[in-house]
Amino acid sequence: MVQATMVMAAEGLGKAFRQGEERIAALDGVSFGVERGTFTAVMGASGSGKTTLLNLLAGLLKPDAGRILLDGDDFSSLKDSERARLRRRRIGFVFQDYNLLPNLTLAENVRLPRLLDEAPEGAEGWLAEIVEFLGLGGRLKHLPSQLSGGERQRAAIARALAMKPEIVLADEPTGNLDLRGSTHVCELLRRLCRERGCTVLAVTHAPHVAIHADRVLMLGDGRLLADRPMSDFGDAEQLAIAYQRLLAPVAEGRP
């Protein structure tokens, strides 16, 4: 049973895709809760269902089974427009490939979620603050093609924060960055939780990213294999060993 104090929770989530005649279960009976103001890492091998889980949590996909609760309310059963509104106002999404619009400047890309809302103007102070917070102050008029990989990733994070979301969902936020860059991004996400009270849920398969989280969820073949506080693992090395140990039976096809 998911606790009522959780900002977001999944209950028995199931999702399958069709590939021709074959039905492939991407997620199967996944349940967990995420506490407000925490940083949760979702780990798993490629094809384990991490991105599907994130898309379900963001309301981009509808689950075949189970439900998603946002502040205790069933989020997944809402109409498309209501889910879009919640996504716009309460959830920030950081994409793996940044997905910045190439024709918009960095400033315009960051403001984009606000432009989609009914009352888009205003909040310039907040936007300036997050841009400064992310160290992008001098690059506002640049197009994405004129930014480095790290800057693009930070711009994607800035855009995710534009609406002051309660929840930030990040899909492999450091997937395209080197170790230094990814450490910087992880520290930023950490600071978001600490200083801004955001709830962060980041998908990764890298232990050195996950160690910045408060909790770690491990997925394998669409099922939740582990849901433990980071303190259980100690450091990145132990986390990597535990991760390998948990995933080994899945990789060998054992339950």
Partner: peptide
């Protein structure tokens, strides 16, 4: 389609 999908992901509903 990527751009439209991005806007949808950022909260653009079907009506918009």
């Amino acid at each position: 389609r990527h751009a439209y999908a991005l806007l949808r992901a950022l909260g653009l509903d079907r009506g918009r």
